[in-house]
Simulated scan of single mutants.
Amino acid sequence: MINFNGNLHPEETHFLNHENRGLCYGDALFETMRAINGKLMFWESHYLRLMSSMRILRMEIPMNFTMEFLEGQIIDTLKGNRLEHMPARVRLTVFRNNGGLYTPTTNDVSFIISVNALQTPFFSLEDKAYEVGLFKDFYVNPDMLSTLKTNNRILNVMGSIFAKENGFANCLLLNTHKSVVEALNGNLFLVQGNEVKTPPLSDGCLNGIVRKKLMEILVRLDDYKLIETSISPFELQKADELFITNAIVGIQPITKYRKKEFTNHVAKNLLGKLNATARLNP
């Protein structure tokens, strides 16, 4: 079942048409998050990011778009799919309503909620090979729009095709200044000694929720020094560890880039702390 503007529909129901602005112009935002037994992980952070992004894109925020209302709609969707007592992946999409060409005739919005079952309730690490490559065909623009979770993901699609064709599990993206920005599906962290580096938002990386939570954890730890800084491609092979973060996987260690193989000790340590944070602050 899919939730469209507060009504549950079977998945095969056709409730969008060819004028949908998300389809025509990518005029849409989305949040992807974990639900655990009917509780949304880091829901407040996801909600605040969505509201901020809607304001930046000049979308009209409905009066009923409160945290409680949208959370209730997500819970109803989980129940409609019998996933309220299971781990689940939730996608909340908001798009500007039909009308206009590049210039919209309205800033009013609609929303869609879809859910799928997940295997594990909390984040976990799999001991498997995870080799990445560097995608250099197209670049991320280092501006505010690149930090938003919009439906404009053609760069990520092309990078994913490149990764599949070349046998990579993922690819790292560069911005127009040739700094490493992020992975195809999440933020990037680099570990060297006790320093943990991650690109700043000014480089154009996604304003990721798990990135934010992990940074909050790192600044409280004496064992590590968090540094927000641009990362050169040449630094990748000098690192002790590389890992990717997103709201579904949590932390994904990279095992190999070119000829360099990496450990995952810091990633394992931080994953436990991330799960503890999720339990305390769902």
Rank of each mutant, 00 (worst) to 15 (best):
A278N: 04
K79D: 03
I56C: 07
K79H: 03
S110G: 13
P104K: 12
F162L: 09
Y224P: 01
F123R: 04
G100E: 14
A129K: 12
N64R: 12
T150V: 06
F168Q: 03
K260H: 12
N3A: 00
K273S: 09
S124F: 11
E182K: 01
A28G: 14
A276C: 06
E241W: 12
H14P: 03
D27V: 11
P62A: 08
S230R: 14
E228N: 09
K79W: 00
T120S: 13
N170G: 09
K256S: 07
T103L: 10
V157Y: 11
G100K: 13
K178P: 03
L270I: 10
L145G: 08
N17D: 15
T245S: 09
K213N: 07
K260A: 15
S53W: 04
S146M: 04
I112H: 07
S230C: 09
A239V: 12
I227P: 00
F243A: 01
G6F: 02
V219E: 05
D27S: 10
L48T: 09
K260S: 13
N187R: 01
I154W: 13
F65I: 08
L214K: 00
F95I: 05
G99E: 07
R58V: 12
T32M: 06
V180T: 03
V219S: 08
V249M: 14
L50A: 07
N3E: 02
M51F: 00
L101T: 10
Y25F: 15
G100D: 14
L118F: 14
K178S: 08
L184V: 01
H177W: 05
Y139N: 00
M51K: 15
V210N: 12
L226W: 14
N170I: 01
N281V: 03
N275E: 10
I75S: 02
F42V: 10
F138H: 10
K213M: 09
Q237W: 02
F234Y: 15
P200D: 10
K260M: 13
A35Y: 14
P62M: 04
G208C: 07
F135P: 02
Q237E: 15
T32W: 04
H9C: 11
L50G: 04
L236N: 06
A28M: 13
